[in-house]
């Protein structure tokens, strides 16, 4: 089904521009054209389709649902809901406070916050389209697992101690929450919602895709495979924590990161190292930490940072051992 994009890139690069098949520029340009057209096509269709389905879902209802749920089950639910709701880092504080207000344990909130940026429809679709279904399933399972384990750990160390007064204030606050009821949605309402979603998500994401595909293309065309296989290919022990350390402060949207991952994988970077790098880039960033500083004491932020580092490193190391 996706062959049409390869043929289209063939047509431009080899038939129209007549670039020699083995040149660096031809390789890079081919990668760029194929990926850009494929990604934009997938994005438009999938964001719209998922928008139609998601129109009646909102975070306020999720909160009611999570309230008073069994702990253990709660982590999975938190991570699961994080995966299906769209994430905007500017909403992480109201979300954090809102969950706390509903007396949802902080660990479950963290499960939600960790998984939310890692898994979203855009990432899932791109992974499936560019790297294959198997890779997509691994990615999604790990995204959920990391959220669940992270949430459990945060509760295990009783992280409520490290919240800022802002968050403590709402903790004992009113339990009777004003909820927003969504009226029954007609197909036309859903269409409107999906259209708005498409516009907002696309306008936010397209530049990341451009940068990501551009970097991926340059990597694809100009970095010799031997360089990566010789230096990083056998999964040297330091390469995974190194990739994670590099990835956490770097910030990219999942959609920008996936073409880079595709390129790195095709150059022989081991799956575990690639995934660890990708997830750490997408999951956390400096701007996010700055926002979270409003509700977490520096100590908790540091714990959070180290926790992510350790988890992604383990994921990478384990996946590097498993043969695919």
């Amino acid at each position: 089904m996706f062959k049409v994009f390869t043929l289209f890139a063939d047509l431009i690069v080899h038939t129209w521009l007549k670039l020699p098949v083995d040149s660096h520029w031809a390789g890079a340009l081919h990668f760029f054209i194929e990926d850009i057209t494929k990604i934009f096509f997938l994005l438009v269709i999938m964001i719209y389709a998922i928008g139609l389905l998601r129109a009646s879902l909102n975070t306020e209802r999720i909160r009611v649902f999570l309230q008073g749920k069994n702990r253990f089950f709660g982590y999975f639910l938190g991570a699961g809901f994080g995966a299906i709701t769209p994430f905007c880092s500017c909403s992480s504080i109201p979300l954090f406070l809102g969950f706390t207000q509903a007396r949802i344990p902080i660990g479950i909130t963290m499960s939600f916050l960790i998984t939310s940026p890692i898994i979203n429809e855009v990432a899932v679709v791109l992974l499936g389209g560019l790297l294959g279904i198997k890779f997509m399933i691994i990615y999604v399972s790990i995204g959920i697992l990391v959220g669940v384990l992270g949430g459990m750990f945060i509760d295990a160390i009783k992280a409520e101690r490290f919240l800022m007064p802002l968050a403590e204030n709402v903790q004992g606050g009113n339990v009777d929450l004003p909820g927003i009821e969504k009226p029954k949605m007609t197909l036309k309402d859903r269409h409107e919602f999906a259209k708005t979603e498409l516009r907002t998500i696309f306008s936010r994401v397209w530049k990341w895709v451009f940068i990501g595909v551009g970097l991926g293309a340059l990597l694809h065309g100009f970095v010799p495979q031997e360089f990566i296989t010789n230096n990083l290919g056998s999964g040297q022990w330091w390469s995974v924590p190194g990739a994670v350390l590099l990835g956490i402060p770097l910030y990219s949207n999942a959609s920008g990161m996936i073409p880079i991952a595709e390129s790195l994988l095709s150059k022989g970077l081991p799956v575990g190292t690639t995934l660890a790098f990708m997830m750490s880039t997408v999951a956390a960033s400096f701007p996010e930490f700055v926002i979270l500083k409003q509700v977490m004491k520096p100590r908790l932020l540091l714990i959070f940072f180290v926790m992510l580092l350790v988890m992604f490193t383990f994921v990478g190391l384990i996946l590097n051992i498993i043969p695919f």
């Binding site: 909102n58 975070t59 306020e60 909160r63 905007c88 500017c90 909403s91 504080i93 109201p94 979300l95 406070l97 809102g98 969950f99 207000q101 802002l166 204030n169 709402v170 929450l177 004003p178 909820g179 927003i180 409003q294």
Partner: peptide, 13 residues
């Protein structure tokens, strides 16, 4: 003000 916002019962802005 974040407290006022949360008081409205919303969690996304």
């Amino acid at each position: 003000d974040i407290n006022e916002i949360v008081a409205f019962g919303i969690m996304t802005i």
